[in-house]
C-alpha cells in the first residue's frame, strides 16, 4: 500500500515535470514566431462607451471589413463609465501583446488626464489610425431671437453669465469648444451640462437653452427645428453650405471629436505595422466608406503617425487653454 502511494507521487512528479517542459517549449516557440504569425487568437476590442453608441456602431462597421481581411475576429468588451476614462485606462493597462486594441476619443484622452487625474496619459498608447472626425456646431432653436453668431456674442457681452449654453459632459469635445469660443469671443456664459445629446437637443427645442454646442452628427437629425450658426471645422461642411466656420468669423475655435484606435506602448513594431496597414486598407475600402456614410459617421482617415501628431498638438493647446481658464494647474 505504502509502496504504491510512493510510486504515485513519483509518477505525478515526473508527469508534472514533463508537462512543464512541454509548456515551456510551447511558450518559447510562440515567442519566436509571434511576429510572423499574428494574430493567432481572437483580439479584444475594448470600447469605452456603451454598446449601440456611436463609437460602437463605427467599430462594428469596421469589424465587418476586418473579418474579410484577417481570420481572427474581434471580441468586443465594453468597459464603460466616467466619460470613457474607465475604458481608456483599461486599454492603457492591458498587456502590450497586440491582443487588446481599443477605441479612443480625442479630446477625451487628452483632457481627462489633465482635469480629472485619469489613470493614463496620451503617451501610454501607440496610435493605429483615426477614423472619424465630428466637428462641433453652435446651434439655436429655429424660432430663436438669435439669427447669427454675431448676435449671440453681442448678447453675451451685454449680459455676462446670462447666456445659457448646453454642452454634453465635462472635459468633452463640446466643453472644449465652448471654452475656446468663450476665450476667443471674450464672453462669459452659463454652461449647463447634459448627459447625452438626446436631452441636450430636447432642452434646446424646449426653450430651456439659448444656444448649444453639439456634435454636428447629432444636430443633423433635428435640422428641421434648429439653426446652425457656426461650425468648428476648418472648411464649410458639405450638407451645411450656408453655415460659416468659426474661422471665417474670426475666431480660432477648432475643437471637434475624433475617434481612432490604439494599442499599448511597447507593442511589437511588426504587430503595429500589421494593424496600421490593415486599418488603412479598411478605411480606404469604398464599401466601408459607403457604410459609414449611411450610418451618419463623419469619416476622416488619418494614419497612425498623423493621428499621434494631432493628439500631441491638441494636448499642448488644451494645456494652455485649461490653465488660462483655471481648470488645470
Amino acid at each position: 500500500m505504502k509502496c504504491s502511494k510512493k510510486w504515485l507521487v513519483y509518477l505525478i512528479a515526473v508527469l508534472t515535470l514533463a508537462m512543464l517542459i512541454v509548456v515551456a517549449g510551447c511558450g518559447g516557440k510562440k515567442d519566436s514566431d509571434k511576429a510572423m504569425k499574428y494574430p493567432t487568437k481572437p483580439i479584444n476590442m475594448v470600447m469605452a462607451f456603451t454598446a449601440g453608441g456611436s463609437s460602437d456602431v463605427q467599430a462594428r462597421i469596421m469589424q465587418k471589413y476586418w473579418d474579410k481581411l484577417v481570420p481572427q475576429p474581434w471580441v468586443f468588451q465594453y468597459k464603460t463609465g466616467a466619460g470613457g476614462a474607465i475604458g481608456f485606462s483599461e486599454i492603457a493597462k492591458a498587456k502590450p501583446d497586440g491582443y487588446t486594441i481599443g477605441g479612443v476619443n480625442v479630446p477625451h484622452i487628452v483632457l481627462q488626464p489633465i482635469g480629472q487625474n485619469a489613470q493614463f496619459s496620451i503617451d501610454d498608447y501607440i496610435y493605429i489610425c483615426q477614423v472619424v472626425n465630428d466637428p462641433q456646431a453652435l446651434v439655436v432653436n429655429k424660432n430663436s431671437r438669435f439669427k447669427s453668431a454675431k448676435e449671440v456674442i453681442e448678447f453675451a457681452k451685454a449680459n455676462p453669465g446670462k447666456l445659457k449654453v448646453g454642452i454634453v459632459g465635462t472635459y468633452s469635445g463640446s466643453h472644449m469648444a465652448l471654452l475656446e469660443w468663450e476665450d476667443q469671443a471674450g464672453i462669459k456664459t452659463a454652461q449647463i451640462v447634459y448627459k447625452g445629446a438626446a436631452d441636450q437637443n430636447a432642452a434646446l427645442l424646449g426653450g430651456e437653452l439659448d444656444v448649444m454646442m453639439g456634435n454636428v452628427n447629432d444636430v443633423m437629425r433635428s435640422l428641421d427645428m434648429m439653426t446652425v450658426l457656426a461650425v468648428t471645422s476648418k472648411e464649410r461642411i458639405k450638407f451645411l453650405p450656408e453655415t460659416p466656420t468659426f474661422k471665417e468669423l474670426g475666431m480660432n475655435v477648432f475643437s471637434d471629436i475624433r475617434r481612432g484606435f490604439v494599442v499599448q506602448k511597447g507593442t511589437d513594431p511588426q504587430i503595429v505595422k500589421f494593424l496600421r496597414d490593415t486599418f488603412k486598407k479598411i478605411a480606404e475600402d469604398p464599401e466601408y466608406i459607403k457604410d459609414m456614410e449611411k450610418a451618419g459617421q463623419p469619416t476622416e482617415y488619418l494614419s497612425g503617425e498623423d493621428f499621434e501628431k494631432y493628439v500631441k498638438e491638441n494636448n499642448a493647446n488644451a494645456q494652455t487653454l485649461l490653465k488660462k481658464v483655471g481648470l488645470a494647474k
Binding site: G53, A198, A202, R221, M225
Partner: peptide
C-alpha cells in the same frame, strides 16, 4: 424628433440611421 426617449430607443435609432432613414 430624432430624440430617443430611452437608451433602447437610442440604439434602435442607430439601426434606423444605418439603413439611411432620417427620423423627423
Amino acid at each position: 424628433l430624432g430624440i430617443p426617449g430611452s437608451a433602447v430607443a437610442a440604439v434602435i435609432m442607430g439601426g434606423l440611421l444605418a439603413h439611411g432613414i432620417q427620423p423627423g
